[in-house]
Design a protein around this nucleic acid. Structure first.
Length: 286
DNA sequence: TGCGGATTAA
Protein backbone atom coordinates (compact mmCIF):
# COMPACT_ATOMS: atom_id res chain seq x y z
CA UNK A 1 0.00 0.00 0.00
CA UNK A 2 2.90 2.31 0.72
CA UNK A 3 3.98 2.35 -2.90
CA UNK A 4 0.96 3.70 -4.71
CA UNK A 5 0.34 6.84 -2.71
CA UNK A 6 3.91 8.02 -2.95
CA UNK A 7 3.56 7.27 -6.65
CA UNK A 8 0.73 9.81 -7.03
CA UNK A 9 2.72 12.39 -5.22
CA UNK A 10 5.87 12.06 -7.27
CA UNK A 11 4.56 11.75 -10.76
CA UNK A 12 1.48 11.32 -12.80
CA UNK A 13 1.82 7.87 -14.27
CA UNK A 14 -0.86 5.63 -15.61
CA UNK A 15 0.38 2.95 -13.23
CA UNK A 16 -0.44 5.02 -10.18
CA UNK A 17 -3.85 5.81 -11.60
CA UNK A 18 -4.48 2.13 -12.10
CA UNK A 19 -3.49 1.49 -8.53
CA UNK A 20 -6.01 4.05 -7.45
CA UNK A 21 -8.77 2.42 -9.48
CA UNK A 22 -7.90 -1.00 -8.11
CA UNK A 23 -7.81 0.32 -4.56
CA UNK A 24 -11.14 2.01 -5.06
CA UNK A 25 -12.86 -1.08 -6.39
CA UNK A 26 -11.50 -3.09 -3.47
CA UNK A 27 -12.93 -0.60 -1.06
CA UNK A 28 -16.25 -0.48 -2.90
CA UNK A 29 -16.50 -4.26 -2.79
CA UNK A 30 -15.69 -4.29 0.87
CA UNK A 31 -18.43 -1.86 1.71
CA UNK A 32 -21.11 -3.38 -0.45
CA UNK A 33 -20.43 -6.74 1.19
CA UNK A 34 -20.35 -5.38 4.67
CA UNK A 35 -23.39 -3.21 4.58
CA UNK A 36 -25.93 -4.05 1.90
CA UNK A 37 -28.35 -1.44 3.23
CA UNK A 38 -25.90 1.43 3.06
CA UNK A 39 -27.28 2.63 -0.26
CA UNK A 40 -30.61 3.57 1.24
CA UNK A 41 -30.49 7.03 2.70
CA UNK A 42 -32.15 7.96 5.94
CA UNK A 43 -34.87 9.89 4.18
CA UNK A 44 -36.00 6.84 2.25
CA UNK A 45 -36.81 5.27 5.63
CA UNK A 46 -39.12 8.14 6.49
CA UNK A 47 -42.71 7.18 7.13
CA UNK A 48 -45.35 8.58 4.81
CA UNK A 49 -46.58 12.06 5.49
CA UNK A 50 -49.73 11.83 7.57
CA UNK A 51 -48.68 8.56 9.20
CA UNK A 52 -50.19 7.77 12.59
CA UNK A 53 -49.01 5.46 15.34
CA UNK A 54 -50.78 2.17 15.93
CA UNK A 55 -51.52 3.08 19.51
CA UNK A 56 -51.90 6.55 20.98
CA UNK A 57 -49.16 6.02 23.53
CA UNK A 58 -46.09 8.21 24.10
CA UNK A 59 -43.83 5.34 23.08
CA UNK A 60 -45.49 4.88 19.69
CA UNK A 61 -45.79 8.59 19.06
CA UNK A 62 -42.15 9.07 19.83
CA UNK A 63 -40.99 6.35 17.46
CA UNK A 64 -42.90 8.02 14.65
CA UNK A 65 -41.83 11.53 15.57
CA UNK A 66 -38.21 10.44 15.70
CA UNK A 67 -38.45 8.90 12.25
CA UNK A 68 -39.86 12.14 10.84
CA UNK A 69 -37.29 14.14 12.75
CA UNK A 70 -34.46 12.09 11.27
CA UNK A 71 -35.90 12.73 7.83
CA UNK A 72 -36.03 16.47 8.51
CA UNK A 73 -39.83 16.54 8.41
CA UNK A 74 -40.36 18.92 11.31
CA UNK A 75 -43.90 19.79 10.33
CA UNK A 76 -44.87 16.14 10.62
CA UNK A 77 -43.20 15.96 14.02
CA UNK A 78 -45.23 18.95 15.16
CA UNK A 79 -48.44 17.57 13.68
CA UNK A 80 -48.04 14.32 15.63
CA UNK A 81 -47.09 16.20 18.76
CA UNK A 82 -50.28 18.29 18.53
CA UNK A 83 -52.36 15.25 17.68
CA UNK A 84 -51.18 13.25 20.65
CA UNK A 85 -51.99 16.08 23.02
CA UNK A 86 -55.19 17.43 21.55
CA UNK A 87 -56.93 14.53 19.88
CA UNK A 88 -55.85 11.71 22.14
CA UNK A 89 -55.22 13.58 25.37
CA UNK A 90 -52.06 11.56 25.58
CA UNK A 91 -49.52 13.30 27.77
CA UNK A 92 -46.09 13.50 26.17
CA UNK A 93 -43.25 12.31 28.38
CA UNK A 94 -39.61 13.52 28.53
CA UNK A 95 -38.62 11.42 25.57
CA UNK A 96 -41.35 12.88 23.35
CA UNK A 97 -40.57 16.43 24.41
CA UNK A 98 -36.86 15.88 23.79
CA UNK A 99 -37.52 14.55 20.30
CA UNK A 100 -39.61 17.60 19.45
CA UNK A 101 -37.16 20.09 20.96
CA UNK A 102 -34.24 18.50 19.12
CA UNK A 103 -36.14 18.42 15.88
CA UNK A 104 -36.88 22.14 16.13
CA UNK A 105 -33.33 22.95 17.17
CA UNK A 106 -31.95 21.03 14.20
CA UNK A 107 -34.38 22.83 11.90
CA UNK A 108 -32.94 26.12 13.15
CA UNK A 109 -36.13 27.14 14.94
CA UNK A 110 -34.62 28.04 18.31
CA UNK A 111 -37.51 30.08 19.73
CA UNK A 112 -39.95 27.26 19.17
CA UNK A 113 -37.49 24.72 20.57
CA UNK A 114 -37.15 26.72 23.78
CA UNK A 115 -40.92 27.19 23.95
CA UNK A 116 -41.49 23.42 23.80
CA UNK A 117 -38.87 22.88 26.49
CA UNK A 118 -40.66 25.40 28.69
CA UNK A 119 -43.96 23.74 27.95
CA UNK A 120 -42.48 20.48 29.19
CA UNK A 121 -41.37 22.05 32.44
CA UNK A 122 -44.70 23.76 33.05
CA UNK A 123 -46.50 20.50 32.30
CA UNK A 124 -44.63 19.05 35.28
CA UNK A 125 -42.48 16.74 33.18
CA UNK A 126 -38.99 16.55 34.70
CA UNK A 127 -36.20 17.00 32.15
CA UNK A 128 -33.47 14.36 32.16
CA UNK A 129 -29.86 14.66 31.00
CA UNK A 130 -30.84 14.06 27.36
CA UNK A 131 -33.43 16.83 27.47
CA UNK A 132 -31.01 19.32 28.97
CA UNK A 133 -28.30 18.27 26.53
CA UNK A 134 -30.53 19.18 23.60
CA UNK A 135 -30.77 22.68 25.04
CA UNK A 136 -27.03 22.80 25.52
CA UNK A 137 -26.65 21.78 21.88
CA UNK A 138 -29.07 24.49 20.79
CA UNK A 139 -27.17 27.23 22.61
CA UNK A 140 -23.67 25.92 22.07
CA UNK A 141 -23.68 24.42 18.59
CA UNK A 142 -26.49 26.29 16.88
CA UNK A 143 -26.64 29.72 18.45
CA UNK A 144 -23.08 30.06 19.83
CA UNK A 145 -24.62 31.51 22.96
CA UNK A 146 -22.15 29.92 25.32
CA UNK A 147 -23.28 31.99 28.28
CA UNK A 148 -26.67 30.36 27.86
CA UNK A 149 -25.17 26.91 27.44
CA UNK A 150 -23.27 27.29 30.72
CA UNK A 151 -26.43 28.55 32.33
CA UNK A 152 -28.32 25.43 31.27
CA UNK A 153 -25.62 23.27 32.81
CA UNK A 154 -25.73 25.22 36.08
CA UNK A 155 -29.48 24.90 36.01
CA UNK A 156 -29.44 21.15 35.53
CA UNK A 157 -26.95 20.74 38.36
CA UNK A 158 -29.21 22.79 40.58
CA UNK A 159 -32.12 20.53 39.66
CA UNK A 160 -30.15 17.48 40.66
CA UNK A 161 -29.49 16.23 37.15
CA UNK A 162 -25.77 15.76 36.63
CA UNK A 163 -24.37 16.66 33.21
CA UNK A 164 -22.88 13.55 31.62
CA UNK A 165 -20.25 12.86 28.94
CA UNK A 166 -22.66 13.70 26.16
CA UNK A 167 -23.62 17.01 27.75
CA UNK A 168 -20.01 18.06 28.12
CA UNK A 169 -18.94 16.70 24.75
CA UNK A 170 -21.74 18.66 23.12
CA UNK A 171 -20.57 21.86 24.79
CA UNK A 172 -16.98 21.12 23.81
CA UNK A 173 -17.98 20.50 20.20
CA UNK A 174 -19.78 23.84 20.06
CA UNK A 175 -16.79 25.66 21.53
CA UNK A 176 -14.44 23.95 19.11
CA UNK A 177 -16.54 24.85 16.08
CA UNK A 178 -16.53 28.43 17.25
CA UNK A 179 -12.73 28.30 17.44
CA UNK A 180 -12.70 28.54 21.24
CA UNK A 181 -10.34 25.62 21.77
CA UNK A 182 -8.75 26.89 24.97
CA UNK A 183 -12.15 27.24 26.55
CA UNK A 184 -13.03 23.75 25.37
CA UNK A 185 -9.92 22.47 27.12
CA UNK A 186 -11.14 24.19 30.27
CA UNK A 187 -14.43 22.30 30.04
CA UNK A 188 -12.43 19.12 29.57
CA UNK A 189 -10.57 19.86 32.80
CA UNK A 190 -13.84 20.45 34.55
CA UNK A 191 -15.08 17.07 33.36
CA UNK A 192 -12.00 15.37 34.71
CA UNK A 193 -12.41 17.15 38.03
CA UNK A 194 -15.95 15.87 38.22
CA UNK A 195 -14.76 12.40 37.32
CA UNK A 196 -16.85 12.41 34.21
CA UNK A 197 -14.78 10.33 31.83
CA UNK A 198 -14.26 11.83 28.38
CA UNK A 199 -14.49 9.55 25.36
CA UNK A 200 -13.77 9.73 21.61
CA UNK A 201 -16.69 12.08 21.08
CA UNK A 202 -15.14 14.47 23.56
CA UNK A 203 -11.67 14.51 22.03
CA UNK A 204 -12.44 14.34 18.32
CA UNK A 205 -13.87 17.86 18.05
CA UNK A 206 -10.73 19.14 19.75
CA UNK A 207 -8.56 17.30 17.24
CA UNK A 208 -10.72 18.86 14.54
CA UNK A 209 -10.30 22.34 15.99
CA UNK A 210 -6.53 21.97 16.12
CA UNK A 211 -6.53 20.81 12.53
CA UNK A 212 -8.69 23.61 11.25
CA UNK A 213 -6.51 26.24 12.81
CA UNK A 214 -3.45 24.57 11.35
CA UNK A 215 -2.02 23.25 14.62
CA UNK A 216 -1.32 19.84 13.15
CA UNK A 217 1.35 19.12 15.71
CA UNK A 218 -1.15 19.62 18.54
CA UNK A 219 -3.60 17.37 16.72
CA UNK A 220 -0.99 14.65 16.33
CA UNK A 221 -0.04 14.94 19.98
CA UNK A 222 -3.63 14.71 21.13
CA UNK A 223 -4.26 11.64 19.00
CA UNK A 224 -1.22 9.98 20.54
CA UNK A 225 -2.31 11.04 24.00
CA UNK A 226 -5.70 9.43 23.43
CA UNK A 227 -3.97 6.08 23.00
CA UNK A 228 -1.95 6.68 26.13
CA UNK A 229 -4.92 7.54 28.33
CA UNK A 230 -6.97 4.57 27.23
CA UNK A 231 -9.38 6.40 25.01
CA UNK A 232 -8.17 5.23 21.61
CA UNK A 233 -9.01 7.38 18.60
CA UNK A 234 -11.39 5.74 16.14
CA UNK A 235 -12.01 6.03 12.41
CA UNK A 236 -13.70 9.42 12.76
CA UNK A 237 -10.77 10.82 14.70
CA UNK A 238 -8.28 9.53 12.17
CA UNK A 239 -10.39 10.84 9.31
CA UNK A 240 -10.15 14.31 10.80
CA UNK A 241 -6.39 14.03 11.13
CA UNK A 242 -5.97 12.49 7.68
CA UNK A 243 -7.96 15.27 6.10
CA UNK A 244 -5.68 17.85 7.68
CA UNK A 245 -2.59 15.94 6.58
CA UNK A 246 -3.90 15.75 3.02
CA UNK A 247 -4.43 19.48 3.05
CA UNK A 248 -0.79 20.07 3.82
CA UNK A 249 0.09 17.31 1.36
CA UNK A 250 1.68 15.08 3.96
CA UNK A 251 0.66 12.02 1.96
CA UNK A 252 3.50 9.90 3.21
CA UNK A 253 2.32 10.35 6.76
CA UNK A 254 -1.23 9.51 5.72
CA UNK A 255 0.06 6.41 4.07
CA UNK A 256 1.82 5.43 7.30
CA UNK A 257 -1.32 5.97 9.34
CA UNK A 258 -3.26 3.73 6.98
CA UNK A 259 -0.56 1.14 7.01
CA UNK A 260 -0.60 0.95 10.80
CA UNK A 261 -4.35 1.21 11.21
CA UNK A 262 -4.73 -2.45 12.19
CA UNK A 263 -2.07 -2.18 14.85
CA UNK A 264 -3.64 1.02 16.16
CA UNK A 265 -7.03 -0.61 16.32
CA UNK A 266 -9.05 1.25 13.72
CA UNK A 267 -10.36 0.55 10.23
CA UNK A 268 -10.39 3.02 7.36
CA UNK A 269 -13.90 3.52 5.96
CA UNK A 270 -15.53 5.17 2.95
CA UNK A 271 -14.89 8.61 4.37
CA UNK A 272 -11.21 7.81 4.90
CA UNK A 273 -10.70 6.74 1.32
CA UNK A 274 -12.78 9.55 -0.02
CA UNK A 275 -10.55 12.06 1.77
CA UNK A 276 -7.44 10.11 0.93
CA UNK A 277 -8.15 9.86 -2.75
CA UNK A 278 -9.38 13.40 -3.05
CA UNK A 279 -6.17 14.83 -1.61
CA UNK A 280 -3.63 13.52 -4.11
CA UNK A 281 -6.11 13.88 -6.99
CA UNK A 282 -6.67 17.50 -6.20
CA UNK A 283 -2.95 18.16 -6.09
CA UNK A 284 -2.50 16.42 -9.40
CA UNK A 285 -5.22 18.47 -11.04
CA UNK A 286 -3.31 21.71 -10.49
C1' DT B 1 -37.98 -1.68 23.13
C1' DG B 2 -38.89 5.05 22.26
C1' DC B 3 -34.89 11.15 23.52
C1' DG B 4 -29.08 13.93 23.41
C1' DG B 5 -22.49 13.52 20.89
C1' DA B 6 -17.43 13.83 16.73
C1' DT B 7 -15.55 13.04 10.15
C1' DT B 8 -15.80 13.35 3.92
C1' DA B 9 -18.35 15.42 -0.74
C1' DA B 10 -19.45 15.69 -5.88
Amino acid sequence: MASHASGWRQRETSASRNDLVIKFSEVAKHFSKKDPSSSSSSSSCAPEVGARPRWPHPFDYNSLMKAFSDAGEVEEVLRLFREMKEDFHCRPDVVCYTTVVDSLATANRPEEAVAVFEEMVSAGVIPDAAAYTVLVKLYSCHLKRFDRAYEVIRWMVKCGCAPDVITYSTLIAGLCWAGRVEEALGVLDQMLEEECRPNVHTYTPIVQAYCSRGSIEDARRLVDAMHAIGCPPNTVTYNVLIQALCKIRAFEEVEKLLEHSDAKGWKPDVVTYSIYMDGPLRVRKR
